[in-house]
Design a protein around this nucleic acid. Structure first.
Length: 130
DNA sequence: GCCAACGTTGGC
DNA sequence: GCCAACGTTGGC
């Protein structure tokens, strides 16, 4: 079971909406590298939800409940279910300030919208921040 | 609002 | 196939 990070601009779509609807098709993945990462998601994998814009923080967790798929109108995406909201979001500034996250895609490539969270970074997130 | 860091497009 | 011009994303 792997972990990923999914970005969203909260004015477009956000964790509140996912919590209300319980499940959603997480769509609109267009970037080539993002699609490549998306396609490696397995059913049951967990996905950190990151809000861009004013928030710039990991705000919660979702779970992939389908395999990645391409919708004719909505592009690439994956079905997800709401898992949890973090009482204390993990901010980008915290992550950037922490040397443990050096090399993490979130820090290295700010424009990437779907990325894996490899074990070293995952452990720090789970043990130190959550 | 600006701009760096990408990605995409289209002329050649 | 190259690359200049343009468009987009997202942090600042």
């Amino acid at each position: 079971m792997a972990y990923f990070l999914l970005k969203t601009e909260p004015s477009d779509y956000n964790l509140d909406l996912l919590e209300k609807s319980k499940t959603a098709f997480w769509d609109g993945v267009a970037n080539n590298l993002a699609i490549k990462h998306l396609k490696t998601i397995q059913k049951g994998d967990l996905c950190f939800i990151y809000h861009t814009g004013n928030e710039k923080a990991i705000v919660g967790l979702a779970k992939a409940i389908s395999l990645p798929k391409e919708d004719e109108a909505k592009g690439w995406g994956v079905d997800v279910s709401f898992e949890k909201r973090y009482s204390k979001p993990i901010t980008l500034s915290e992550i950037k300030a922490d040397k443990n996250f050096e090399g993490f895609d979130l820090v290295r490539n700010s424009r990437l919208s779907v990325m894996p969270v490899p074990p070293p970074y995952l452990e720090v997130l789970l043990n130190k921040y959550l």
